[in-house]
Nucleic acid binder design. Structure first.
Lengths: 125, 125
DNA sequence: GACTATGTTATATTTTAAGTATAACAGCTA
DNA sequence: TAGCTGTTATACTTAAAATATAACATAGTC
């Protein structure tokens, strides 16, 4: 799995990292049971500080994407029951769909875009 | 239109403001041609600095939601051609849908949530 | 003309978050 | 013992957010 950090982005590095790992899990680039690089290795590879990686891993753990083992490292272990994901998604979608309505994107168009992204992610499963 | 700022949120105040105004436009709480409070009035009403409101207004102008007039104030004036909104939406959806897949939310469920939010926003048009 | 309101710009300051730098600890493996 | 994990702690630097004052140009109103 390739991690690309945009250092000019307005998004924090640990957020970018967290998002890319979530996308990596969704697209099955990394699968359940597999492990991520250690915080030190990944930090060195990207060229950032260890604590920044650790912050991303901690968030992913708290959100139910990872299990962190002091001896084995970071292992993908999905816990769908961690929180109400449907409610969270609805909250996130609220702003995006409001933008879409203002830009005259129809509900049908949104459905098409959703399908497109789903197909992109589910391609190789 | 009621503006609610969560001062404990991790989201910047000017972002919260910008998002709520976008949602307000999408739900037709404020309509095209209507005007927002002046930067000074809104700032005082919320209890924040003038520049924070000004930043939100400037962003909304740049995104094609407002026209700012030095004499008349801030007027809703939608410009759907301002940028490729479909591409922007797809980029925003990528992370949210990846989260959904990891949390075992099906494509059909997403469609249902999208419809729900659309109906909520379009209720009184 | 004087006054008031608008957005706009400028500058300086404070506050907060992000990121870095070092170091140490606890637990496991080889 | 040596080396690898995540974890925690502390201190520092950097960047962004938010505040505080002030001034300007432009219009409308009294």
């Amino acid at each position: 799995m390739i991690v690309e950090i945009d250092f000019n982005s307005d998004e924090a590095i640990y957020i970018q990292l967290r998002n890319q790992i979530v996308i990596g899990i969704a697209t099955a680039e990394i699968r359940e049971g597999e492990s991520l690089p250690s915080v030190r290795d990944l930090a060195e590879h990207i060229g950032i500080n260890m604590h920044t990686v650790n912050k991303a891993y901690s968030i992913l753990k708290q959100e139910g994407y990872l299990q962190l083992d002091r001896r084995k490292g970071a292992i993908i272990a999905l816990d769908p029951e961690k929180y109400d994901a449907r409610l969270a998604m609805m909250e996130d979608l609220r702003v995006i769909l409001a933008e879409g309505i203002c830009k005259e994107i129809s509900c049908e168009e949104v459905h098409r875009i959703v399908d497109l992204v789903f197909r992109e992610f589910k391609r190789e499963v």
